[in-house]
Design a protein around this nucleic acid. Sequence first.
RNA 1: GGUCGGGUGGCCGAGAGGCGAGGCAAGGGACUGCAAAUCCCUCUACACGGGUUCAAAUCCCGUCCCGACCUCCA
Length: 467
Amino acid sequence: MSALNLYDTATREVGVFTPLKSGEVSIYVCGATVQASPHIGHIRSAVNFDILRRWLMHSGFEVSFIRNVTDIDDKILQKAAQEKTPWWAHAMKYEREFTAAFSALNVLPPTYEPRATGHITQMIELMQILIDNGSAYAPGNGDVYLEVRKLQRYLVLSGQRIDDLMPAADTDGAISMKRDPRDFALWKAAKPGEPSWPTPWGAGRPGWHLECSAMAHTYLGESFDIHGGGLDLIFPHHENEIAQSEAAGYGFAKRWLHNAWVTQSGEKMSKSLGNSLLVETILERVRGIELRWYLGSAHYRSMLEYSESALDESAVAFRRIEAFLKRATEMMGELPTPIVSDAFSAAMNDDLAVPTGLATISENLRTGNQGITDADHVVVSKSASEIRGALGILGCDPCDSHFEDKSGNDMTHAMDGVVKLALQERASARERKDFKASDAIRDGLLALGITIEDTAQGPRWSIMEKS
RNA sequence: GGUCGGGUGGCCGAGAGGCGAGGCAAGGGACUGCAAAUCCCUCUACACGGGUUCAAAUCCCGUCCCGACCUCCA
């Protein structure tokens, strides 16, 4: 089997992935700033990195997966003030929404999920190092800045030059205490009424995502394998993380992965544009597993142009796969064992080429369906196993216990009996060629959301999924 | 202005020098009492103009168009 190749934003090239420690992979992904409800763009990012994680685990790696929660920032304070709720209550509310959305989409919980507010000590330690070695300065107004002109390297991810950057909007001309307008805040002095934590340089709160540098260091060490996040974090968020960490002498991330957006009419989904689609809203239309299938089906570096028809089409395609697995299971009398095929592996090893991987599912689906028609157990078993194996990597295995109905009032058995009684009536009507009566039964069941299919092995019924 | 992506059939979406991924839709067919489900067949493409090459969707040059980032967006 071929080795895993991954893209690296820093080099803009796909190359062989070799972890720092053999057999182990450390990943830090920028999670949510919990200031509002999650939209499908946020969750796409989580799904993409979850697929990476599952693939690494399948490939035999021990994966440490850290995904942070930024629970203190300007927008959280601003929105909490608008809603007249304490900032921490605001943050917690949305953190729960994110957690619920992750769970609904079968995103594995991270190995650890550190919150910014729980790591102020580590941030102070980091700032102390940066001030001591001359990389950062505290001009006395309570802020702490990183001096970008002193950095050995800066803007290595975005490939820009400091002098090409547009003047920063936050410099406020003469008021600025910065040595250079491009210097950025590691720590921000508290304004009256704002929450703050004491430091040697004054009370305040984290600046440019200092928490990510501090927490990555705390849980993954000075160097780690992969840092992930959305495309829009490249600059300035990730550039600043690199600057803060490298100035402290850390090796930091060896590889950078960035996922592309979900767009609408070609435009990025964002709250400011008013075109964001909340996960909650979409889940009224399709099931979590279907939304995940949709979000995961595009290559992670490609924009995913959202439309209702594309979502619906994708859900229908997924149900076809599900229906096959169900029929295959009925035919074989047991769940197919998941097997990851060589073709699917090759696709995943090529920078997680999910779309190419999906082609292998389509091919298996076709041969598998033919196998059912031919009652060929060997063919059906192989196809079903390979499909299940691929779906498992994508986090969309319908047999995954995560997607089981946990309501506890499973009426399937009773229902099966009732429907079979109706089907017996229909069968006898068909025997006496009373198709009017037999169709009436079928239509009646259909009206209740139960579809009937006549197969060589007799009729089978299923409940239509919501759509 | 700087930086980075992208333009592939009716639609979605891979590929990155030579064998036309795959899906959806459409049309035809098989199966069926009719359906449904399933299978088979058919169709169409690489934004534009040059160039390199035996061979270009793929490499080079130029043009047009779209998008993103440029100090707190996934």
